[in-house]
């Protein structure tokens, strides 16, 4: 049950499945509106393909250099566009299935999220030792995911409507966005900046500033690979500059459009993990 409490935190699933937004590459000098940049980045970071799977390794290093690891397999499925269009442009509700293998005390636990754009997400945790399907009551989105430096919201995608976005710079490589929360009391940052790669719309760097204007968190994409035609971040780092800790997240065995059925994201498959998709 200790493990239960540890997982029963406001975790949201995250998958930094990023890809080259198909059909949207334009000449570098073409002007895009801020909204277009934001929308494409959101799609690139969280919505590539109809579905996807990957193995994830998180390495958390604290200020004293001690490391802890998290290993899990993740499945994602996007709800299809209501108009039936299959051009990957719909960024709606999503379902995630996270099957833990390490550390050993969370082995075989399953965390499942039905991410809803217009209402609270539904989060489930399955504890195999008790055969217990637990609902997770968690509304805080800016708390650590499984004890790492990534926050629930980093990894699931912060709702783009929660911030105002300004294009502060356009360099040869990047659009630099400054994002300011509409409700400053709801978050711990005053604003964050993102460096978005102009052709791939991959967020390459993020910097978070506290209420005093000091930078205290930093994100960087460290490795990008092309998988099934999708440009994908396969290694990224989040550093907490105050706690002097950092988490590296590495994706392997990334696959897109594997045709995960919708019913995998139900109680049945919490109790009976869908092995064919978790390999």
């Amino acid at each position: 049950m200790k493990t239960l409490d540890r997982l029963a935190m406001p975790v949201r699933v995250f998958i930094v499945f990023s890809t080259l937004a198909g059909g949207f590459v334009r000449a570098a000098d073409e002007q895009l509106s801020v909204d277009e940049i934001v929308n494409r980045t959101n799609r690139t970071a969280y919505y590539q393909g109809r579905d996807g799977s990957a193995k994830v390794l998180m390495t958390i290093t604290d200020s004293q250099g001690r490391t802890r690891t998290r290993e899990f397999a993740i499945l994602r499925r996007d709800d299809p566009a209501p108009d039936g269009k299959d051009d990957d442009s719909h960024c709606g509700n999503q379902k995630f299935y996270v099957y833990f293998s390490r550390p050993a005390d969370v082995n075989k636990m399953v965390f499942m999220v039905h991410k809803n754009v217009d209402r609270e997400d539904e989060r489930y945790l399955y504890l195999p030792a008790l055969d217990l399907v637990k609902r997770i009551a968690a509304t805080e989105k800016r708390t650590s995911f499984v004890g790492s430096d990534f926050l629930y919201e980093d990894v699931s995608g912060r709702n783009i409507n929660d911030d105002t976005h300004e294009l502060v710079e356009t360099s040869q490589n990047y659009y630099v966005l400054k994002n300011t929360p509409k409700d400053p009391a709801s978050v711990e940052f005053s604003h964050f900046k993102m460096w978005i790669h102009k052709t791939s719309f991959i967020p390459v760097k993020g910097e978070y500033y506290d209420k005093n204007g000091d930078k205290y968190r930093e994100y960087s994409a460290e490795k990008v690979e092309t998988v099934d035609g999708f440009t994908t971040v396969t290694k990224a780092r989040m550093s907490d500059l105050k706690a002097k800790s950092a988490t590296v997240i590495e994706y392997s065995n990334v696959k897109y459009n594997v045709n995960v059925p919708d019913d995998v994201f139900t109680e049945r498959f919490l109790r009976k993990p869908p092995r064919e998709f978790l390999r």
Binding site: V204, E207, S220, K223, E225, K235, S252, N253
Partner: peptide, 25 residues
Amino acid sequence: ESNEPELPVGLGAAEKEKSESAQET
């Protein structure tokens, strides 16, 4: 001169190491 990030491996920057796939447990 600027705060601009380097391009990560795979986005223009040369790949340093061959992408070793799956982490073996």
